[in-house]
Structure formats: C-alpha cells, structure tokens
C-alpha cells in the first residue's frame, strides 16, 4: 500500500516572462516505511515536490494521495488537519518556535492535535531522550546549538507517529559529525517506528543512508534507484 501516490503532477512558476516548470508531469509512489532521498540540482523541483506532498502547495494539475486521502482537492482547513495528523516536517533552518522550550516545541503538534497533557509530556520526554536531548527539555531554541535545534525539530516531526516525514535539506546547516548523528537517528527511527522518510538533499553523504534514491532534474524524475 502506498503512503504517497503522485500522478502526473505539474507545477509551474512565473519569473518575469520566464515560465519555470518546477514539476513536469511527475509521478511517484512511496510505500510505508521507505527511506528515500530526493536529490537534484537547485531548481530541479525537490522542494516543490515536498511542498506538494506536504499539502503546503497545490499542483497545477495531477493528483496527490497521502495516507489514502486525495489532498490536491482539500480545503485549507482540511489540509491543515491532514498535515497535523499525517506528516512531520523537518526544515533546513531548524524552524522552532522561539518562545517555546524544547519540550513545548515537541509538544506543540500533540497539543494542537488534542493529546491530553500527561500523555503529551510523557511522549515528548521520551522522544527527547531518544534524540539525545534529555536534560535540555526546558531550554529555549536560542539556548541550543544548531544540531540540538535540528534534533528538537526531528523530535517534533516524529513524536506523533506520522505516516510520513518530509525533510528539506535537514543537514545543510550542520557539521559532518552532527549530520552523521542526525542521519543515524533518522535511520533508527525509520527502522524502529516504520516511519516513511522523504529527504531532499544535495549531500552525497546523506544519500548514502537511503534505501531508495530519487534523482530529479527540470521537474522530472530522471532516476529512481533502490538498494
């Protein structure tokens, strides 16, 4: 069963007089538990594909099914709920809420989901321990290093056991040691919780962790390798 099914996706952007085809009749199927990297040069459409699958952007045409729901026809509120319950996001620039502590950032999605406080706190503490941030739960993002912040973002992305984690250049701002730790964490979470990971990256070292590597160019998939 597919976690994600994209069929014939098209998405164009206009830049001055130029029309850029970010997605050009792209189709892809992603099964539950896969660990995939999405690579390609800048402008190849990686982020556009992630945004479309994550319900952050709408394709001009084509269909997207995530966790058996057609998301390309959903309203804004329905998309919000779909993202909340099915998708975890890890962004390049950490993107934590600066006025919340590490634990509160991790709890944020669960709180919006309506998880009771005690359960929320327990889950957050467990996941923070799992990502190696035990004892740092009360620190605000400004008091954490880049790697620690990205770990909090990962913890937030996976704490509510989403069907899919979308990560856009998650290691771009990290040093190689921190990068390795984060990727090992991703692999561990993928194997342990069977969470599907789709990671957009330029980094060959990141691609080395993947069981399936999709390469994009000009809005199309030019290679799809499985190990």
């Amino acid at each position: 069963m597919s976690t994600v099914l994209c069929e014939n996706l098209c998405r164009t952007f206009h830049q001055g007089d130029a029309v850029i085809k970010a997605l050009d009749h792209l189709s892809v199927s992603i099964s539950q538990g896969e660990f995939i990297t999405l690579s390609g040069p800048s402008g190849s459409g990686k982020t556009t594909l992630l945004n479309a699958i994550g319900g952050l952007d709408r394709p001009d045409s084509g269909s997207i099914t995530v966790a058996d729901q057609r998301i390309d026809q959903m309203s804004k509120a329905q998309l919000s709920d779909m993202r909340l319950n099915n998708i975890g996001f890890v962004f390049q620039a950490y993107n934590l809420i600066p006025v919340l502590s590490a634990r509160e950032n991790v709890e944020f999605v669960m709180q919006v989901q309506g998880v009771p406080a005690a359960e929320r706190r327990q889950n957050a503490m467990e996941i923070l321990e799992e990502v190696g941030l035990s004892g740092m739960e009360d620190r605000r993002p400004g008091q954490l290093s880049g790697g620690q912040q990205q770990r909090v973002a990962v913890a937030r992305a996976i704490v509510s056991k989403p069907a899919l984690v979308l990560a856009d250049e998650p290691t771009a701002n990290l040093d190689s040691v921190t990068m390795s730790h984060l990727m090992e964490l991703f692999v561990e979470l993928n194997e342990k919780h069977r969470i599907t990971f789709l990671i957009a990256t330029h980094d060959q070292r990141v691609m080395a962790y993947a069981k399936r590597r999709i390469h994009m160019q000009d809005g199309k998939i030019v290679s799809d390798e499985r190990q």
């Binding site: 919000s80 779909m82 319950n85 998708i87 962004f91 809420i97 600066p98 919006v112």
Partner: peptide, 16 residues
C-alpha cells in the same frame, strides 16, 4: 512571519 508559516505548516489552522 516565519514562525506563523511554521505553525501553519505544522497543522495549526489559519483561524487559530
């Protein structure tokens, strides 16, 4: 703006 975008991306509704 970025934090608002983040909250929306994470699934907080625009009304919230």
């Amino acid at each position: 703006v970025r934090e608002i975008g983040l909250m929306l991306a994470l699934g907080m509704r625009p009304s919230a």
